[in-house]
């Protein structure tokens, strides 16, 4: 099977004169329907990588293919953008119209979808992010988490195959963060939409099927969350943290306690500790 997204020897810098590559020789494939989290500290190139997925940025060297479309192909630009929806950090700066449903309708209107179908798509998109009851509300009366879900509905109305989220929870309170993460997971599970999420929250990254860690324009770790977060030392050396339960297990292991597996969630951690204490009795 051909991968849904493939980066082939992708290198990028903002201008010719600049000596340093922002991205250097990236080779990465992402399967249809997967949920990938991209981790990295500020300036690691993770947002730059995301912007290559719908041709906001074009490769300096190498190629990016999405669903068989070369992102450099200008004739297919809008096909590409319709397939890959992009959600940004600040929900306030992505919402175009005052009334919620008018905003969600913006993308299908741009695509020239007939009015009756726009109505259907808007209703479906609002339902998918659980915002149906707010469809006639003014966006400035909503909370941050609700606004971000409207922004997601706004790209969902294009019926994309993939949604790229660039730190979608960075400006939200914990409640809003939870709402948005739940929405993203549901879209991946129920609608089969491929998710690429840029984040620097570890507890969000562990929800993904796969974690890609970037540093200085390179992919340094790539695998399922258990695999990636077992490299505690490497993650720390590039300025990233690991989830707190993982950190605790790591410290215990360092102190000589016999722990085999990597844990990510509080529940797993509790279970391992329980078994450990049971065994010592």
């Amino acid at each position: 099977m051909k991968p849904f997204i493939s980066f082939e020897n992708l290198s990028f810098k903002y201008s010719e004169e600049e000596p340093r590559w922002v991205l250097e020789n990236i080779n990465l494939t992402i399967d249809d329907g997967s949920f990938v989290a991209v981790l990295g500290h500020n300036g690691s190139g993770k947002s730059t990588l995301a912007k290559h997925l719908n041709a906001i940025l074009l490769p300096t060297e190498g190629k990016v293919y999405v669903d068989g479309i070369d992102t450099c192909d200008e004739e297919k630009l809008f096909d590409l953008r319709q397939r890959v929806g992009m959600v940004f950090q600040n929900p306030d700066n992505q919402i175009v119209a005052t009334v919620v449903e008018e905003d969600v309708a913006f993308a299908p209107e741009n695509l020239g979808v007939p009015p009756a179908e726009i109505r259907e798509r808007v209703d479906w998109a609002l339902e998918a992010v659980s915002m149906t009851e707010y469809r006639e509300a003014a966006s400035y009366h909503l909370s941050g988490g609700q606004k971000q879900r409207i922004a997601i509905a706004g790209v969902l109305a294009m019926k994309p195959k993939c949604i790229v989220l660039d730190e979608p929870t960075a400006m939200l309170d914990p409640q809003g963060r939870k709402e948005v993460m739940k929405t993203i997971r549901e879209l991946n599970k129920n609608e089969g939409i491929t998710i690429v999420m840029i984040t620097h929250y570890m507890n969000e990254a562990i929800m993904a099927d796969r974690v890609v860690v970037m540093d200085e324009g390179h992919v340094i770790l790539d695998g399922d969350p258990y695999e990636v977060f077992s490299h505690v030392d490497e993650l720390k050396s590039v300025g990233l943290d690991v989830p707190q339960p993982t950190e605790l297990m790591y410290l215990l292991k360092g102190a000589g306690v016999d722990i085999e597996k990597t844990v990510l969630t509080d529940e797993e951690c509790a279970e391992v500790l329980y078994n450990l204490l049971e065994g010592q009795r």
Binding site: F78, R81, N93, N110
Partner: peptide, 9 residues
């Protein structure tokens, strides 16, 4: 940029 991403032309 957000408008372009939503296919505004």
């Amino acid at each position: 940029i957000a408008m372009e991403c939503r296919c505004y032309q």
